[in-house]
């Protein structure tokens, strides 16, 4: 049994009427099939409007899918609400979603009570979580005085307040400083060691590469690829490249016409980047460069960020329709 499973999941939002009185609609999820086994840290990577938050909201039961199905630990999120909710911890993040006039401790105590944590355990549980997330020093101050990163950590603490086996983290490091973001990565490692299933949405490729067992790339409500960060890199190894220093112009011209070379560019630091269309294209390029005395060179495999950019390259800054 998968911890999270979706089948042909579709969600359409009805937009307002236009000037001609016609109502429009926007497809946020379009036939998403996703399987996440227990204990996996799964990254959902995509641009704004790709459908990441919509998927998290459906899995947390606060949004109903238009069609298809989604389940958590075998319980359907529409027909099995009562069974799903105790199993899921949601972190929607941002400045909203907390009672700003109350302290971090009181916020956590409230959510703990709401999630059915026995009263005798609430104090201990909130103190432990405040310690774990580095908020103990300001636990009794109003949340409205917290920085965005502190609020984000409080959101994370809230997600864990009832000790759920499945965590949905929607852009959890937004607003965090680099040190906190590093702490967050360590936390994800701890959550994995505790056997929890984590679905984390992010824009941050480095973060996904660092913390996820598998990554799913989404765009326009559809899944582009789902694989481990390393497998995704291998999948697009054709996007590999050779980098070399001090390549004469005449040699650059010769490299450019070799089979499998798609692009050659030299930057102001004197580094020439040779983009390759396939892994087979690398040996002739390397041979030619070495024969001509260029020894300061390296082959590079694409990082997740490059994979991501290649797969949704044409989209640019446009948000989802």
């Amino acid at each position: 049994m998968n911890a999270i499973q979706t089948r042909a999941l579709r969600r359409v939002f009805t937009a307002g009427r236009d000037k001609r009185g016609k109502s429009g609609s926007r497809t946020a999820l379009d036939g998403v099939d996703l399987s996440i086994p227990p204990g996996e840290v799964h990254g959902l990577l995509g641009p704004n409007g790709a459908g990441k938050t919509t998927l998290c909201k459906i899995l947390s039961t606060v949004l109903v899918p238009t069609s298809g199905s989604a389940s958590v630990m075998g319980h359907d999120v529409v027909t099995g609400l009562a069974a799903v909710r105790p199993l899921v911890g949601c972190v929607f993040g941002g400045d909203r979603g907390l009672y700003g006039r109350l302290s971090g401790r009181k916020n956590l105590a409230y959510w703990a009570a709401l999630y059915g944590v026995p009263r005798r355990l609430i104090d201990g549980r909130t103190t432990t979580l405040l310690d774990r997330f580095g908020l103990a020093g300001r636990a009794d101050e109003r949340v409205e005085t917290y920085s965005r990163g502190m609020k984000q950590r409080l959101h994370l603490a809230r997600g864990l307040v009832h000790n759920p086996p499945v965590l949905l983290l929607d852009e959890p490091t937004t607003g965090m400083d680099p040190v906190s973001a590093m702490d967050f990565r360590r936390l994800i490692g701890e959550l994995r060691n505790e056997g929890r299933t984590v679905l984390v949405t992010t824009h941050d490729m480095a973060e996904a590469e660092a913390v996820c067992d598998r990554v799913t790339l989404v765009n326009d409500g559809r899944i582009l690829h789902s694989a481990s960060p390393q497998e995704l890199s291998a999948l697009v190894s054709r996007y590999g490249r050779v980098e070399a220093r001090n390549v004469p112009d005449t040699l650059t011209q010769r490299v450019r016409i070799l089979p499998g070379v798609t692009r050659v560019a030299t930057d102001t630091d004197g580094v020439t980047r040779i983009e390759l269309a396939s892994a087979d294209a690398a040996p002739p390029v390397l041979r030619l460069l070495i024969e001509r005395g260029v020894t300061d060179l390296a082959t590079c495999r694409p990082g997740l960020e490059e994979v991501y950019l290649h797969l949704i390259a044409d989209r640019g800054m446009e948000v989802g329709r």
Binding site: S60, P86, G97, L98, Y115, G116
Partner: peptide, 18 residues
């Protein structure tokens, strides 16, 4: 308006007693 309804609804049990 303040984003606290979603996590409240996502918690187990009915909203009515709260």
């Amino acid at each position: 308006h303040h984003g606290t309804l979603e996590p409240t609804v996502a918690a187990p049990g009915s909203l009515a007693p709260v």
